[in-house]
Nucleic acid binder design. Structure first.
Lengths: 140, 140
DNA sequence: TAAAGTTGATACTATTTAATATCAACTTTC
DNA sequence: GAAAGTTGATATTAAATAGTATCAACTTTA
């Protein structure tokens, strides 16, 4: 599932969309593919699931990309990774509300040496349902 | 602030938008104006603030209406009004994620006899910033 | 009771936006 | 080292969407 194996042309074919669209989703912060040293992308099966979910959100649920990004920005990352209060005080992700945490360049932070691609915050909460479920779990 | 006093033509003028647009925001679940017995709307000053916020979200932040509605649907109402676990188990608002709780017809519920118009959930969390702040407060 | 305002509804429009196509430069493959 | 594939970027397009105008029926105002 998590093995980066599909180059962009294959991923696009499997997802049924064009290559520029895949790049757009990435630019918009909706997905983070693995990158080779040469900067070429490789997609995992989990990425394909995520892409499917993104398409559903945009094409069926009719939420636009900015809306989706703002929803992702509401994931309570601090309560998932359990960073310290000091870290939070200086964290752009914690203190803003227009970008998900994985779109932010974390410096001198709990997240500085962590890889967002492997972080639960990015991996587990790609849509409204999963985010609300997490909130329910955290706010019993 | 909470006194219903402006008929729709005045509210539209004060908000700088057309009457049909005001009705649309209501239909879309973004605002709940007070209604007279004759079904005519009256807007409060707080409504005007909310309308201003809605316009900003749509026109400046570029979040579309469906996106905004989904964001509002993420407000953890259950943790704000403290309804019972049994109520939650059967509550459409708790168990879905596409509409804010005030768009739902609550039956045999903690919220059945409550007026959404006066509920903190509706009143206090009209935008991303306020929602995220509430999550921070609840998830320390 | 006449004039002005509101109701929900339908029809229309100007913009926006998701999605492509195409490009020259670079990387991989065979 | 030639062919195929990828890179980011720009330009273009088809469709969706926020916003209006307009309507007959109803309510309020004066």
């Amino acid at each position: 599932m998590d093995e980066p194996k599909y180059p962009i042309s294959v991923a696009a074919k499997l997802a049924g969309i064009s290559i520029p669209t895949l790049r757009m989703y990435e630019r918009e912060g909706l997905i983070i593919p693995y990158k080779k040293e040469s900067n070429q992308r490789l997609y995992t099966d989990r990425d394909l699931e995520r892409i499917h979910c993104i398409r559903q959100t945009i094409n069926e649920d009719k939420i636009n990309i900015e809306g989706m990004r703002r929803i992702l920005a509401l994931i309570p990352c601090w309560a998932i990774v359990h960073c310290s209060e000091e870290d939070r005080a200086a964290c752009e992700a914690y203190n803003s509300h227009n970008k998900p945490c994985w779109m932010i360049n974390h410096k001198n932070n709990f997240c500085s040496d962590r890889n967002c691609l492997e972080c639960e915050v990015y991996k587990a909460y790609g849509n409204c349902a999963s985010i609300k479920d997490k909130l329910k779990e955290l706010l019993k």
